[in-house]
Design a protein around this nucleic acid. Structure first.
Lengths: 349, 349
DNA sequence: TCGTAATCTTAAAGCGCTTTAAATCGCCGC
DNA sequence: GCGGCGATTTAAAGCGCTTTAAGATTACGA
């Protein structure tokens, strides 16, 4: 039941403090000018009245909105986490965030439109799927930051993690544990998979294990993981069941884990598994998956930074920020020794 | 790189169409008045100029904002789903949604403040944790709808599912499959658990199995499920390992599943498991968990409906909408017969 | 004591759109 | 040919806040 007496306006505060609305405006926004006496009077009046500025009006009056628009997939917990960090980073810089969720009935284009209606000053797109050309077109009219995806679109700022390096870390970790037969379960067709696969190959080469390269078809979800597990276990002669697997992402790793364990294999005893994304599910005590973190906090900060540099710092050249991922070691990886001593030897070939 | 030539204003459209700004405003919002000729001229001019109304300005001018504010936990996929449906429902009624995420550094109060700053006309709170008193206070000044939680707060509209009925459905399903020893793994202390537990007890009574009531301590996450699985398997004499378990929610069910299977039990062969929420994870092919759905779409529609009824329908009495949940049968439940024929008999007592 | 600079304060002009109240235009009947 | 009426159109007054430019005060040095 909204209050009948409409909320107090700036004018009311001014009247009560016996000063002009200009002074009130200045004081309330902490701008220099008003004397200490005026400040106090205004603050007191505002407090008494329970005054709260009408953002709509102030946005209209000042040319700026100080709003950052974010598009995201609400169903993705990774995006959820990123959003948390974006909020925090924006807060610190005096910006507010408007989120525009993508849903079945609301594609990326629509979500962006909505953000523009709100007059957001910059668009932060989480894992945008818009074609590069469209991103570039958008960037001609607005500030846009693509997060988590490489983009060859003029004028678009990009903030992403070095996926190849990330996979490399995983491989090094496994080799360090004594593993030699390390398979990589691929992701869906696309630039991200390519990069991760490269990371895998290069790491093996670097470690003198180039010959052991073993890439299995995969995908980006649990089912792909299950399928990959099956194919790894039923392969023909020259190929062997690896002692460790690096999966395209955590979901795939999850499918792998599930299937391997149902088949009676012990993880990490018989097979070590590493995921990618360090998603919330990887952190669950029941999953406890070793995974590569894309450092969402750092990405968030970098993205907001990119936006504010354009807005307040006068930057006009697009930037491409590449962050170093890091490995989070948990319970699905262990020294290879374990395998030899308690594995059930369910290998082929 | 935002465009230099500032975006066209209403005035520009008016000039180009050779009519007044009033006419343009009327036409663009589809209000009655302008003649067909005027309409056409305006639409054409607007199209030519690529005109897009400045929401900020129009919000200020008209008294209404047509904005619904939603607070949610971004990490919850259930909230994510709900949000999708809320968006859709709001869209249909000509409202726009502003979402205010809860994060570590941004509690519910803060999130609500933010929504008020945006001048949202109604607050839709997803599973609010604010104490009833605070909800009631908020409701004195604003329209508030609590979603998914019972609230004894004056003036607050509530939209929730009949949890007791939901658990009842699960129990009936299991009994229909021939199960008799059906345990319930409880949730965390609170009204929701109480209601679900009641639903469990009442259903058993109704089916003449009151004596078989078997409530195990639980919680609201995977770990609680693991713990519950352990306790179910190691209990003393008179108690037996049940042939079916209804869990407080899907996460608990997941923990149960994981632990039971690692212990070599077959689900649903040895034990049938039912979750609650019909979350995305329950639907994963690798999980395929029978679960009770709270019908998020229906909740979303009801919530938006509640808000618009107050805003446009003139309703002033609070409503309490209780929706009927439904059971989604998947792969973790099967006739008890299965158990007898292929169970490994790992029971106690 | 007076002029001038420095410091505060404020009147007033918007920001871009909506809306009301009044003006305009046709058209009809007498 | 004129008064009148309904259908359109529009001038103008805001919505609540910011900001600029001018005005008021005070402070100082000469």
């Amino acid at each position: 039941m909204p209050s009948r007496p409409s909320r107090p306006r700036l004018e009311d505060v001014a009247a009560r403090a016996r000063v002009s609305t200009a002074s009130v405006s200045l004081v309330l926004r902490g701008r220099p000018g008003p004397s200490a006496a005026t400040r106090e009077a205004v603050l007191e009046a505002a407090r008494d009245l329970g005054y709260r500025a009408d953002r709509t009006a102030s946005l209209l009056a000042r040319r700026r909105t100080q709003l950052l628009g974010v598009t995201m997939d609400v169903r993705s917990t990774f995006h959820g986490e990123l959003l948390e960090d974006l909020q925090a980073a924006a807060d610190e810089r005096g910006y507010d965030v408007v989120v525009s969720p993508l849903t079945r009935t609301r594609d990326e284009r629509r979500a962006v439109e909505s953000l523009l209606d709100f007059r957001c000053e910059a668009l932060l797109l989480l894992g945008p799927r818009l074609p590069d050309a469209e991103l570039a077109a958008l960037a001609e009219e607005h500030h846009v930051v693509a997060i988590g995806r490489r983009a060859r679109a003029a004028g678009v700022d990009v903030v992403r993690a070095a996926d190849d390096v990330g996979v490399g870390l995983a491989v090094e970790h496994l080799v360090g544990l004594g593993h030699r037969d390390i398979a990589f379960v691929d992701g869906p067709r696309g630039p991200i998979s390519t990069l991760r696969r490269q990371g895998y190959r290069h790491a093996l080469k670097r470690l003198g294990l180039a010959d052991a390269a073993d890439v299995a078809a995969g995908g980006d979800d649990e089912e792909s993981g299950v399928a990959a597990a099956e194919s790894l276990r039923t392969r023909e002669a020259p190929l062997r069941m690896p002692s460790a697997v690096v999966a395209f992402n955590d979901r795939v790793a999850l499918g792998l884990l599930d299937r391997l364990r149902r088949d009676g294999l012990d993880v990490p005893g018989d097979v070590a598994v590493v995921g990618y994304d360090d998603s919330l599910v990887a952190r669950l005590a029941t999953v406890d998956l070793t995974s590569v973190s894309q450092a969402p906090e750092a990405m968030a900060v970098a993205a907001v930074e990119a936006a504010t540099q354009r807005l307040d710092g006068g930057r006009t050249e697009a930037v491409d920020v590449v962050l170093e991922p890091h490995l989070v070691v948990r319970g699905t990886t262990a020294p290879r020794g374990d395998h030899a001593t308690r594995g059930d030897g369910t290998r082929e070939g």
